[in-house]
Amino acid sequence: MVIKVFLASSSGSTAIKKKQQDVVAFLEALKVDYTELDIACNEQNRMWMRENVPEEKKPSNGIPLPPQIFNEESYCGDYDTFFDAKEENSVYSFLGLPPPPGSKEAQQEEEEEQAEEEAE
């Protein structure tokens, strides 16, 4: 499974640049394998990203802005949903990846499973 992060290498927007840097830096800190796909220099990447972001996730103008995150062909989300997952310690489930042993997310899953077992 390859995480695909669609970015714009030559964005004039400081906000977009910061969001892209935040996503990439966090994935690198977690040691998640990912591929950066530039939509500014590659028309195929741009078209693929635009076609594969679900309709309900597109902004009112219909053109999704980077960064957009996919796991292979599956849409994970944009910066806002990534940020929410980061805040909730659920980035691995957001990305559709199993959390590594010992991570906060893995510990949360174990605690939830134990609570369910005790409830039964």
Results as ranks from 00 to 15, higher is better:
residue 8 A to L: 09
residue 116 E to K: 14
residue 28 E to H: 12
residue 106 A to C: 07
residue 69 I to A: 04
residue 118 E to L: 15
residue 118 E to I: 13
residue 99 P to T: 08
residue 90 S to G: 12
residue 79 Y to T: 03
residue 34 Y to S: 12
residue 105 E to F: 05
residue 120 E to R: 14
residue 6 F to C: 04
residue 111 E to R: 10
residue 92 Y to Q: 04
residue 20 Q to C: 09
residue 117 E to Q: 11
residue 55 E to A: 07
residue 112 E to M: 10
residue 43 E to T: 11
residue 79 Y to W: 07
residue 68 Q to E: 15
residue 70 F to D: 02
residue 102 G to N: 05
residue 30 L to D: 03
residue 38 D to A: 01
residue 85 A to Q: 00
residue 96 G to M: 00
residue 5 V to K: 05
residue 34 Y to A: 10
residue 42 N to W: 07
residue 15 A to R: 12
residue 62 G to I: 06
residue 24 V to M: 08
residue 51 E to V: 00
residue 9 S to G: 15
residue 28 E to Q: 15
residue 76 C to R: 08
residue 105 E to V: 06
residue 77 G to F: 00
residue 27 L to Y: 03
residue 89 N to S: 14
residue 10 S to T: 14
residue 22 D to E: 12
residue 9 S to L: 10
residue 74 S to Y: 05
residue 105 E to Y: 02
residue 61 N to K: 15
residue 14 T to F: 06
residue 116 E to C: 09
residue 64 P to T: 07
residue 2 V to D: 01
residue 41 C to H: 13
residue 10 S to D: 12
residue 17 K to S: 13
residue 34 Y to E: 09
residue 65 L to C: 11
residue 52 N to S: 02
residue 60 S to E: 07
residue 47 M to D: 10
residue 75 Y to G: 00
residue 81 T to I: 05
residue 36 E to R: 10
residue 13 S to P: 07
residue 97 L to G: 00
residue 42 N to E: 03
residue 65 L to D: 08
residue 56 E to D: 11
residue 119 A to I: 05
residue 37 L to M: 10
residue 34 Y to L: 13
residue 115 A to N: 12
residue 25 A to H: 09
residue 21 Q to K: 11
residue 9 S to D: 14
residue 34 Y to I: 08
residue 114 Q to M: 15
residue 75 Y to L: 02
residue 31 K to H: 14
residue 75 Y to T: 02
residue 53 V to D: 02
residue 74 S to Q: 15
residue 112 E to D: 12
residue 4 K to P: 01
residue 72 E to D: 14
residue 117 E to A: 11
residue 24 V to F: 03
residue 5 V to P: 02
residue 63 I to L: 12
residue 85 A to G: 01
residue 83 F to S: 14
residue 95 L to R: 00
residue 89 N to Q: 13
residue 69 I to Y: 04
residue 6 F to L: 08
residue 39 I to F: 03
residue 61 N to W: 12
residue 72 E to C: 03
residue 120 E to K: 12
residue 18 K to Y: 10
residue 66 P to T: 15
residue 91 V to Q: 08
residue 36 E to G: 10
residue 39 I to R: 03
residue 51 E to P: 00
residue 23 V to T: 09
residue 44 Q to V: 13
residue 85 A to H: 03
residue 13 S to V: 04
residue 94 F to M: 00
residue 5 V to T: 05
residue 36 E to N: 11
residue 106 A to W: 00
residue 6 F to E: 06
residue 62 G to F: 11
residue 102 G to R: 08
residue 21 Q to L: 11
residue 55 E to M: 10
residue 19 K to R: 15
residue 58 K to Y: 14
residue 85 A to D: 01
residue 69 I to L: 10
residue 116 E to N: 08
residue 87 E to F: 06
residue 100 P to W: 08
residue 73 E to C: 03
